[in-house]
Amino acid sequence: MKLLYFAWMRQRIGTGEETLTKPDGMATVAELIAHLAARGPGYAAAFENPAVIKVAINQDYADFTSPIADGDEIAFFPPVTGG
């Protein structure tokens, strides 16, 4: 999976992009978040309040129950503030 992080999530994690081989048994966005949040203090800080985090799979908005696959591009970001 290609993982992307934007805005303050990118800053807290320390990178905007990385790849991750989907661990066996991981099926949803929520499980991916739990996995990432346990990777270290930067990740924990980025995912500390999942209620405010948005997720997109392959550049379309998704939600935490959405299924994930190994070839997916999965992006995490705070609420958008364009316009």
Partner: peptide
């Protein structure tokens, strides 16, 4: 279009002031 841009388009603003940088909140 503007209402949807504000809430759906994936842009994030960070403001730079004398006191530092702050991410704009939705």
């Amino acid at each position: 279009l503007m209402d949807w841009l504000k809430t759906k388009a994936p842009f994030w603003k960070v403001e730079e002031t004398e006191t530092g940088e702050t991410w704009v909140e939705a």
